[in-house]
């Protein structure tokens, strides 16, 4: 698999120079939470990447599965080896479109609810996904994005053995927060 983000980055350099319509982060935060009768499990990842192109509305998010950290080593081991098969599928990727970008004014402080539509690939399985998100522009003009949504494990062919069916939820809650930087040469 080629490095999609680097490709996006290079195209950005070549095509638009300094037109500041592209935003990115390499330190996005993604967490998920599984709330099952016997156990609550959460994991955090602070090295997710994301790119938004405000001209086209296209956006991407990528995350390394092995960079999710759990409280217990055993959970992390099972997550990687048994459920996500992260050596075979090291990344999760979302590629999509911000549907209602016209209402977002990057020059104006405010919080803008948007809808993101695209395809999510986890564990080698791709599904269409539509989630609500929020873009915020603060006083300094800094752009942040955040979203909460749920994922059904079965949709991504993540099989949970019946012995631990009360330990792991069938649906996990995902929370993502991104502090974007403008895409400039040398950034």
């Amino acid at each position: 698999m080629k490095n999609v983000f680097l490709a996006v980055a290079l195209i950005a350099f070549a095509a638009t120079g300094l037109q500041a319509q592209k935003y990115f982060t390499r330190e996005g935060s993604i967490s998920f939470f599984s709330d099952a009768p016997l156990e609550k499990i959460e994991a955090h990842n602070g090295q997710a990447t994301s790119v938004i192109d405000f001209e086209s509305g296209k956006m991407e998010i990528a995350v390394l599965i092995k960079a999710f950290q759990f409280e217990k080593a055993l959970m992390e081991e099972h997550f990687n080896e048994n459920y996500m098969e992260s050596s075979k599928y090291p990344k999760a990727l979302f590629k999509g479109q911000i549907a209602d970008l016209k209402g977002v004014d990057l020059e104006k402080e405010g919080t803008y609810p948007v809808k993101v539509i695209g395809s999510m690939t986890i564990h080698g399985v791709t599904n269409e996904l539509e989630v609500p998100a929020e873009l915020t522009i603060d006083k300094e003009g800094v752009l942040t994005g955040n979203t909460n949504f749920e994922l059904v494990l079965a949709d991504y062919e993540i099989a949970i053995p019946s012995v631990v069916k009360d330990n792991i939820a069938k649906t996990v809650k995902v929370t993502a927060n991104f502090n974007f930087q403008e895409f400039k040469k040398g950034s």
């Binding site: 490095n3 390499r26 090295q47 950290q69 090291p90």
Partner: peptide
């Protein structure tokens, strides 16, 4: 650190 792969950058955790 522990190597977890590459996105834009190579990532080491812990």
């Amino acid at each position: 650190g522990v190597c977890t792969g590459m996105l834009m950058d190579v990532v080491l955790i812990r």
